[in-house]
């Protein structure tokens, strides 16, 4: 049983990390908008624009449509935000171990990642608008679609750790402690690169960004699942989107790029924590630009049928191919 002190520290740390996570998430959204604007030959909004938007949204009242189911409609944004923050608490940030590290593993994180999308589906169905209903149906379809490639990545990582004799292969702490690239031979590196690219395509889908923003599809569904949301509820969804962006970046860093700066310079204590956290955030920004900003700026929106084909056929095959390369690699190395 936990002692009161540790519980208190955990709660405080969780609150602190949530606030920092929300702020960093919003900054990420700002950076994304800025870079995307520069790619389109625009100046773009200032970096603090998401904060300005959020302030405005939070100062406005919620409008609940007549046909909506108010309880579900209002609960959806809270659930979405809460679940994305909880995922954040499971992520190792730099050299800081996750606050809730002892209470769950990668499988739990995968489930938690699905919760914001589920909340959006529930909120969409609850808002009683035909646009939101179509959007919610599409959100469900695309959720089912991108789970397969994501699952193949998780299995590959766990298999790798398991076959290398690491205890607790699904725990994020052990994934970070054993960078996967060091556990494989040349064949496995190819497999991991394929998996990394697959992950880069899953991230924008998780985040409902173009080309996978069919559930929101501004031009045909006018915002889809979010069409009836306004004011504070929409603000909460915006925050959840920011945190989710941070989480997806953080997950990619934890799985594929877990290295830290502090051992390189022999730093210790709080300095090491700060430097590693900053390095972590820099890696997240870079990954987000490459896998979210570039893709959403350089592609047209897919039809929902294209999304399903892409994830089930092309990326599904790519994920499984990467997984089999990784397994083949470890099997071959077992022989020689």
């Amino acid at each position: 049983m936990l002692s009161m002190d540790i519980l208190l520290v955990t709660i405080l740390a969780a609150i602190g990390l949530s606030i920092i996570g929300i702020a960093l998430g919003l900054i990420l959204l700002g950076i994304d908008r800025r870079i995307s604007a520069r790619m389109q030959a625009r100046i773009g909004p200032p970096l603090r624009q998401p904060f300005i938007d959020l302030k405005k949204l939070l100062s406005k009242e919620n409008v609940i449509p007549e046909n909506a189911i108010p309880s579900l409609f209002n609960a959806a944004p809270i659930v979405a935000l809460a679940s994305s923050i909880v995922v954040l608490l499971y992520l190792p940030i730099g050299s800081m171990m996750p606050i809730l590290g002892g209470y769950g593993d990668l499988i739990l994180v995968m489930y938690l990642l699905a919760v914001p999308a589920l909340a959006m589906v529930a909120g969409g169905f609850a808002s009683g608008s035909p646009y939101a209903t179509v959007g919610a149906q599409r959100e469900m379809v695309s959720m089912i679609a991108y789970e397969l490639p994501l699952a193949s990545i998780v299995i590959a990582v766990a298999w790798l750790l398991y076959s290398s004799g690491v205890a607790d292969p699904f725990a994020l702490t052990s994934i970070v402690a054993n960078p996967i690239w060091s556990l494989v031979g040349p064949l496995g590196v190819v497999g991991l690169i394929i998996l990394l690219l697959t992950f880069a395509w899953v991230s924008p889908a998780e985040l409902s960004k173009i080309p996978f923003d069919t559930p929101e599809a501004e031009t045909e569904l006018a915002g889809g699942v979010l069409v009836e949301y306004s004011g504070k509820n929409l603000g909460l969804f915006t925050v959840a989107q920011g945190v989710k962006t941070l989480v997806m970046g953080g997950l990619a860093v934890a799985i594929f790029f877990p290295w830290n700066l502090s051992p390189l310079f022999g730093l210790t204590g709080y300095v090491a924590l700060t430097v590693d956290a900053a390095f972590f955030f820099a890696k997240v920004i870079l990954l987000m630009i490459l896998s979210v900003t570039v893709i959403r700026t350089g592609l047209a929106r897919f039809r929902i049928t294209h999304v399903v084909t892409l994830f089930w056929v092309w990326l599904g095959v790519a994920g499984l191919f990467g997984l089999s390369l990784v397994i083949l690699d470890s099997v071959l190395r077992g022989w020689f």
């Binding site: 790619m39 389109q40 080309p211 031009t219 047209a300």
Partner: peptide
């Protein structure tokens, strides 16, 4: 047309 396809980059380019 580019905007309707969700391709805003091309929309900005065409209008530029």
């Amino acid at each position: 047309a580019a905007h309707e396809l969700g391709f805003d980059t091309l929309f900005y380019l065409a209008w530029r």
